[in-house]
């Protein structure tokens, strides 16, 4: 698929707005989960990036992150991931489980999985409502490892080409205890469908 620059910019604006609403829902869900802790949404970015460039989206390539990955099918197909720096994973789990985890057993991983599930599916709900489609999230997969290894595995599963259209949003608490990134990668074939559902198909 090729775009000219002006179309690109306009479409990215639309995706950014979509990201804004989706992430707004996700942030509210996370805030509830944390007993109404105040979370601030980071202004979302929609971008077309090269694969190598995208490696820097979740911190240094060798930094430790927690990640939740969900495959989206139904009216729109794509991939969603929630990426959290390790310190955020620790504070999140510490908050939910009552103690900061020293190592990751099934208990910690499944808690992280559930957090990701809640955050990502609330984002998807907003997306489904706006595009008037039915979206099915897969069972969330979870990993804690080097950022670049985790992110490249997601991209490999998505079989992305050289460039990725990505909507990225994050949230922060006022105490900066938790920050994270939500990435949505629509399948290339479905990107046009997504824009069409938003009334942008003919541009």
């Amino acid at each position: 698929m090729t775009y000219d620059r002006k179309q690109d910019e306009f479409r990215l604006d639309v995706l950014k707005e979509l990201g804004n609403i989706g992430a707004g829902h996700a942030t509210t869900a996370l805030s509830r989960l944390l007993g109404n802790k105040k979370l601030t949404l980071v202004v979302p970015q929609a971008m077309i990036v090269g694969m190598q460039e995208s490696m820097g989206l979740c911190g240094g390539p060798e930094s430790l992150v927690g990640a939740i990955y969900i495959r989206v099918s139904g009216g729109l197909c794509g991939h969603m991931a929630l990426l959290l720096p390790f310190t955020s994973v620790q504070s999140l789990l510490g908050y939910l489980l009552g103690a900061t985890p020293q190592e990751f057993s099934d208990m910690e991983l499944s808690t992280l999985q559930e957090v990701g599930n809640i955050v990502v599916t609330s984002y998807l709900n907003a997306l489904a409502e706006m595009t008037n489609t039915v979206l099915y999230p897969s069972v969330p997969a979870v990993a804690v490892d080097m950022a670049a290894a985790v992110w490249s595995s997601i991209l490999a599963g998505a079989e992305v080409a050289d460039y990725i259209t990505i909507v990225q949003t994050g949230f922060q608490t006022d105490a900066e205890i938790i920050d994270g990134t939500i990435a949505f990668i629509p399948d290339e074939e479905d990107l046009a469908k997504l824009l069409e559902a938003l009334g942008m198909g003919e541009l």
Partner: peptide, 15 residues
Amino acid sequence: GSQLFSYGASVMDVG
């Protein structure tokens, strides 16, 4: 060639 993600059957075993 590792399989980093657990639980979900969603990431094919690309590794």
